[in-house]
Design a protein around this nucleic acid. Structure first.
Lengths: 109, 109
DNA sequence: CAGATTAATCGTAATATTGCGATACAATAT
DNA sequence: ATATTGTATCGCAATATTACGATTAATCTG
């Protein structure tokens, strides 16, 4: 089917899965890390930095944007991207909460 | 294509993306959370707990297992699953490292 | 205005994922 | 031994994802 049955899960579960999915590709990880490294915003040198076609990069940027993780503002003919600090914090907290929930109890199989 | 070009990324980037992908589905999030809640290990009542077919649950368990996040030990006719504390810690640390790398600098576009 | 540059979008091909019925495969129970 | 129970696996259909060439749209430059 390829179609996730999201009706049967809670909102939080669906959202967290969506967040994971947004980062579930090495290109998108690489884009985020490059944006972190260059501090200020970067545009289409991502195409050079990573070895992917312009259309492909643009598609990954679109996904990161629709996930809310990055913003893009037009700067002349190019577009300047950067991480959205607010959404980043939300992601960080959501992930933290998820991972903190488990404590090793050693009472396992 | 549907085929990720993992050659052009670093090992860390590929691994982190793989980790994200393992959790990029609400059913797998729900399975993990149920395993956390029930502390001790659980078997096939996941089929009842979530509203998915047995074959589907089994497939998600397989993915979580191949990601290393859970272990399954045979217990009579049923199988007892639990979180692998060691791998959980690795995930937690990898995610922490990723999210800590960014500091809001307000020098953005 | 004509050309150049940059990025988004369209269309398409290849592959991956999700879900499930059917079946096979244990291990127990009778 | 045979039935029963709990899981894994197979095979399939539907949908999603990834990648990219080609095109379009928008802005800048001469």
């Amino acid at each position: 089917m390829g179609l996730t049955k999201s009706e049967i899960f809670t909102d939080r579960q669906n959202k967290l899965a969506q967040m994971m999915k947004a980062l579930a590709h090495p290109a998108r990880i690489a884009i985020i890390q490059y944006l972190i490294k260059t501090q200020a915003c970067v545009c289409g040198d991502l195409v050079e930095e990573l070895g992917l076609a312009q259309a492909t990069i643009s598609q990954h940027l679109k996904e990161l944007k629709s996930a809310g993780l990055i913003q893009g503002t037009i700067d002349g003919t190019s577009v300047c991207y950067c991480i959205d600090p607010k959404v980043w914090k939300q992601y960080k907290e959501a992930f933290d909460t998820f991972f903190v929930a488990y404590k090793n109890k050693d009472n396992c199989c």
